[in-house]
């Protein structure tokens, strides 16, 4: 609550009360005579409010959300294509898809990010956000592919037969009948994959992308508070993922409409 109030006051340009309070408390923090609550509030002031640092968190959060959202989009589209390729009876489709999935899942995301950044895009000047989206998207696609493949295989064979017996071709049957059911089945795991993705984008700090984790790290380097900035960004991750989980729960309930007996 204190943070929210402080933010509101800061935004309104009315920080005099806080500033006065800080001027009174900071000497006590220096000589170690501050009490418990003064220490806590002092930490929050230095790591969130001072010098408009809350803006750093918000910008970092914005980058994290942008990269995660776009990478998830790449992941779901490419992952679906990979799943369909891997299930194909044509070896020149299924083999490369299988190899790609295996390769991506067998190497660390961080290494993939470094290879794409310093290897593939070494000599070109590309926005770090785009590099992050490509790296995380290509990585996520491998996991999404396996989730979708599992979903497709869980759909009863009779569904395909019913579609084909009506004269629909293989692709129409897949697109209109099998995939919608497969994605519904895979939705909880896809949601989980997206949650993982939001947090894993933090490795992009290695290529100097200022996401939420990097922002916290930067603030620590300025304030020298041992962990306050990290806690703040952790709370922001928690908030975002809580909201996302709620939304997915709503979506799942809507999709379950057809299961009512």
């Amino acid at each position: 609550m204190l943070i929210a109030t402080a933010l509101a006051e800061n935004i309104a340009g009315n920080a005099s009360f806080l500033e006065n309070w800080w001027n009174a408390v900071s000497p006590k923090l220096m000589d170690g005579t501050a009490n418990f609550w003064e220490t806590i509030y002092g930490e929050i002031y230095r790591n969130v409010i001072m010098e408009g640092r809350w803006l750093n968190y918000l910008k970092g959060l914005g980058v994290t959300l942008e990269v995660s959202f776009l990478a998830a989009l790449v992941g779901v589209i490419l992952g679906t294509v990979l799943a369909l390729m891997k299930l194909s009876r044509t070896p020149w489709l299924s083999k490369p898809a299988g190899a790609y999935i295996h390769l991506i899942r067998s190497t660390p995301l961080l290494l993939q990010v470094l290879i794409i950044n310093f290897g593939i895009f070494a000599s070109v000047n590309v926005d770090k956000i785009i590099i992050g989206v490509i790296a995380c998207g290509l990585n996520s696609a491998a996991y999404v592919a396996e989730l979708i493949r599992g979903g497709i295989q869980s759909v009863d064979k009779g569904q395909t037969e019913a579609g084909r017996s009506l004269g629909l071709n293989g692709w129409q049957t897949m697109r209109l009948i099998v995939l919608p059911q497969a994605i519904k089945t895979a939705l909880p795991s896809l949601c989980n994959e997206f949650i993982v993705l939001i947090k894993e984008t933090s490795v992009l700090a290695y290529i100097a992308l200022t996401d939420l984790t990097k922002a916290a790290d930067y603030i620590r380097s300025r304030t020298f508070s041992p962990f306050t900035s990290y806690i703040v960004s952790a709370l922001l991750y928690l908030a975002v993922i809580s909201i996302f989980t709620k939304l997915v729960g709503k979506l799942e309930r809507r999709l379950r409409r057809s299961d009512n007996r």
């Binding site: 009863d156 569904q159 009506l166 071709n169």
Partner: peptide
């Protein structure tokens, strides 16, 4: 065969209605 199947209706033991569609 897709064109031929339009003219041949099939009914299955397990019905195989599409559960995600009304």
């Amino acid at each position: 065969i897709n064109r031929i199947r339009r003219k041949m209706g099939m009914v299955f033991q397990q019905f195989n209605l599409f559960p995600h569609l009304n």
